[in-house]
Amino acid sequence: MRSLLKVELTRLRWRRAVLVMLLGAVVAPLLIAAGVLWDTRPVSDADIARAKEDAQYSAEMSRPAYDDCVADPSGYGVTADDDPASACRDMVGYYPDSENWQDYLYRSVLNLPAQLDESASAVAAIVVILAILLGTTFVGADWASGSMSNQLLFEPRRTRVWWAKGITVALAGAVLTLLGLVVFWAVLGTGAALRDVSVPGSLWGDVAGHAGRAMILGAAAALAGFALTMFFRSTVATLGVVVVVTALSSLIVGLMPIADPIQWQPTMHALAFLQNGFDYTYWPSNCWDSDCGEEERTISMLRGSLFLGTLVLAAVAASLASFRRRDVP
């Protein structure tokens, strides 16, 4: 088994498609991190001057409405109890002397903890998709070229062959995901250090937890992609299933007569696993009013992991059984 595993790792290393995935796992996080740093770049004097000009212009534009409001407060919904000047200012957004110029910077401050549930999850999602592609194309090439039968002429124990390939893609999926997140956080961490942005002490622990869960998700995704391709014996068929599950599942589940469709969407469970729980608002069906019993619900990480684990296990079981029994062309 060890020699088979080594062979599969070598095969993986030699595959050009895998190198493309690795490149994607570096470039995509780099671009996202660069985008975050750009959006939070320090404010220059010119930026401040332009923001003050914009604020001044806006104040001039809203001045007529403000004057109307002060002249006839009730027409603007201002009650007699309110101070007309203050209430009208808020009502029409009239801020003279550019006092709200910061609103016109359109720039947030670099906040690393906030990136955990935002950009880091986006990075994780991208590298997990790359991991699925890796698992799929790795073995899809074996089926497309027909070399699977050649391999079985040297090792006819199919269960061993399946697991050697499966372990290989799972390891590669985990490494791919880790690589993407390391690149992302390295760029953001460096940016924060250069800007003297303070970082909470607990951040890197949270990042490690997030990255660890992402690695598991990446490994499971690669394994699932591999298992499906071993089942369908076609990269295209697997990619079709992946598109349906990731992109169309919300539509499909939404059309089914299920009370709370979000509870059955794989992508939501992936988010719950990745972010240590996922909160959403549940509206009962056929409810279009604002007050008909909507409630906050949570998909816990445990539920997310059980849901996804069941899907992956089902794919693995079907794939293994199929590979062991079916004729190999």
Binding site: S3, L4, K6, V7, T10, R11, W14, S147, N150, Q151, F154, E155
Partner: peptide, 10 residues
């Protein structure tokens, strides 16, 4: 490369 993979597997 093709032969190396087969050879190493045995």
């Amino acid at each position: 490369q093709n032969l190396l993979l087969l050879s190493r597997s045995i």
